[in-house]
Computed example of a mutant assay.
Amino acid sequence: MPRICRRHLSPERPHFVRLFCCMVAGGAMILVAGCASMGLSGVSEPAAEPHSVAMFVASTRKGEHGASNETAVEGGARFSLQQIGVPPDHTPGKVERPSFGSEDPQKHFVAVSRRVLDENEFFSELASHISGRIGSNRDVLIYVHGFNTSYDEARFRLAQIAADGRFGGVVILYTWPAAGSLLDYGAAKENATTSRDALTKLIHRVAELPDVGRVHVLAHSMGAWLAMEALRENAISGSPDLNGKLGDVMLAAPDIDLNVFRQQLARLDASHVSVLVASNDRALSIARTLAGDRPRLGGLDLNNPTDRAALDELGVKAYDLSAEATGLIKHGTFADAPQAVRTIASQITSSRPQDANTQAVLGDRPVDSKIVTTPLAPLTGAPAAAPPQ
Rank of each mutant, 00 (worst) to 15 (best):
K245H: 15
Q359R: 13
E70W: 14
R352F: 07
R166I: 02
A227I: 09
S124K: 10
A192R: 00
V86L: 08
V217S: 02
P383D: 13
K201C: 05
V144P: 03
A192H: 00
H65P: 00
L183R: 13
V206A: 01
Q264K: 09
A48W: 08
D281E: 11
A278P: 01
A224S: 15
R294H: 07
M23D: 00
P88T: 14
G186R: 11
C21G: 04
H220Q: 05
S68D: 14
G39E: 09
S37N: 11
D164T: 01
C21I: 00
A219S: 15
T380M: 06
K62P: 01
R7Q: 11
T193I: 05
Y143I: 03
D336A: 12
L321R: 06
P46V: 13
F109W: 03
L290I: 14
E313C: 09
V112Q: 11
C35S: 07
Y185Q: 07
D139W: 07
R196M: 05
L276D: 06
Y174L: 09
Y185T: 09
Y174N: 08
I256S: 01
A377L: 12
L40M: 12
R114V: 02
D255P: 04
L9W: 01
V116F: 13
P92N: 00
H51M: 06
L81M: 09
F147D: 01
L31W: 11
P305Q: 11
Q160R: 11
L231M: 12
N148P: 01
A58W: 01
L379N: 13
V110P: 03
A219M: 10
D164R: 05
I130K: 00
V95W: 03
G27R: 03
S285M: 10
G213R: 08
Q354E: 15
Q354R: 12
V277L: 10
S239Y: 04
A198H: 02
Y185F: 15
V32P: 05
Q160S: 15
H204E: 09
E96W: 04
T343A: 07
V53E: 11
E45R: 14
A154S: 15
A47H: 12
E313R: 13
A47K: 14
P98S: 02
Y151G: 02
G42A: 04
S285I: 04
A224P: 01
I348L: 09
F16M: 08
V53L: 11
A67S: 07
G292Q: 04
I286F: 10
G315L: 07
G223P: 02
D336V: 05
E103L: 05
H129L: 11
Y143R: 01
R61F: 03
A111V: 13
P383L: 11
Y185M: 08
V372T: 10
C22R: 14
V32M: 08
I30A: 01
